[in-house]
C-alpha cells in the first residue's frame, strides 16, 4: 500500500511487505476467474493451469489504472502518488518501466470498466497452453469470450474498426511482460 517505509524498517522488512502485497491480489484473480461464465466448467486441473500461467498477466491489466504514463507516476493504495524516479531510487526498476509502457498503450484505447473486465477474462483463458489437458474446451471458452468482447466493443464504437485488433495486440505484450518479469524474486520471512 505504500512504497516508503518508516526509517525504523529495514530494507528486508520493506521487501517482505512488498512480496506480501501480491498474495491478496492473486486471491482476487482466482475469485475473478470463478466468475467468468464457463470457467468452472473446465476441469479443475485446467482451471489451475490457466490461473498459474495467466494470473501475472491479469494483474498487469488490473494494475494499469494505478499508473499515470504522461506524468510517469504511480498511485499506491494509500492514495499517495510517487514519481517513477523516486520509486527507482527504492530499487523498483525494470518491471515498473515495462508496466508504464504497457499502461500507456492500453490506456490509449479508452476502454470502459466492463470492457476491461471482459478483456481480463480473455487474457486469462489465452494464457499458455502447456499442461492443459482438455485443450478443445479451453479454446472454445476463449473463442466465446473473444466473440463477446468483439461484440461489446464494436457495438459501442461502430465507426472504429481498429480498436478491437489493437486490443488483441496487447496479448503478446502481456506474454512478453510475463516472460521477462515473473521470475523476479520475492522474499517471505519464515517465522
Amino acid at each position: 500500500s505504500c512504497p516508503v517505509a518508516p526509517a525504523s524498517r529495514s530494507s528486508q522488512e520493506v521487501w517482505e511487505s512488498f512480496s506480501q502485497c501480491f498474495t491478496p491480489a492473486v486471491k482476487e484473480v482466482v475469485e475473478f476467474a470463478k466468475s467468468i461464465p464457463g470457467f468452472q466448467m473446465l476441469s479443475q486441473h485446467d482451471q489451475v493451469m490457466l490461473l498459474k500461467s495467466g494470473t501475472f498477466q491479469v494483474l498487469m491489466v488490473r494494475f494499469c489504472s494505478l499508473f499515470e504514463p504522461k506524468e510517469r507516476t504511480v498511485t499506491f493504495l494509500n492514495g499517495q502518488t510517487y514519481s517513477l524516479a523516486s520509486l527507482r531510487a527504492l530499487g523498483m526498476g525494470s518491471l515498473l518501466d515495462a508496466m508504464f509502457d504497457f499502461s500507456e498503450k492500453l490506456g490509449s484505447l479508452g476502454l470502459e470498466q466492463d470492457e476491461m473486465a471482459l478483456f481480463m477474462a480473455v487474457v486469462l483463458v489465452s494464457a499458455d497452453r502447456s499442461g492443459i489437458v482438455e485443450v478443445g474446451a479451453v479454446e472454445q471458452l476463449q473463442e466465446n469470450l473473444i466473440k463477446a468482447l468483439r461484440s461489446l466493443i464494436t457495438s459501442r464504437r461502430p465507426d472504429d474498426g481498429t480498436l478491437f485488433p489493437k486490443l488483441l495486440l496487447r496479448l503478446p505484450d502481456l506474454r512478453t511482460l510475463n516472460n521477462q518479469h515473473s521470475e523476479k524474486l520475492l522474499a517471505f520471512r519464515i517465522d
Binding site: 479443475q44 501475472f56 518479469h181 523476479k184 524474486l185 522474499a187
Partner: peptide, 25 residues
C-alpha cells in the same frame, strides 16, 4: 536471526492458487 523463503513471483502465484483450490475441495 530471521530466515526467509525466497521464491519467484511465478512460484508464489502458483503456491497461492494451489492452496486456494486445495482449501475449496
Amino acid at each position: 536471526p530471521k530466515t526467509h523463503r525466497v521464491m519467484t513471483l511465478a512460484d508464489h502465484i502458483s503456491h497461492i492458487i494451489t492452496q486456494d483450490f486445495a482449501r475449496n475441495q
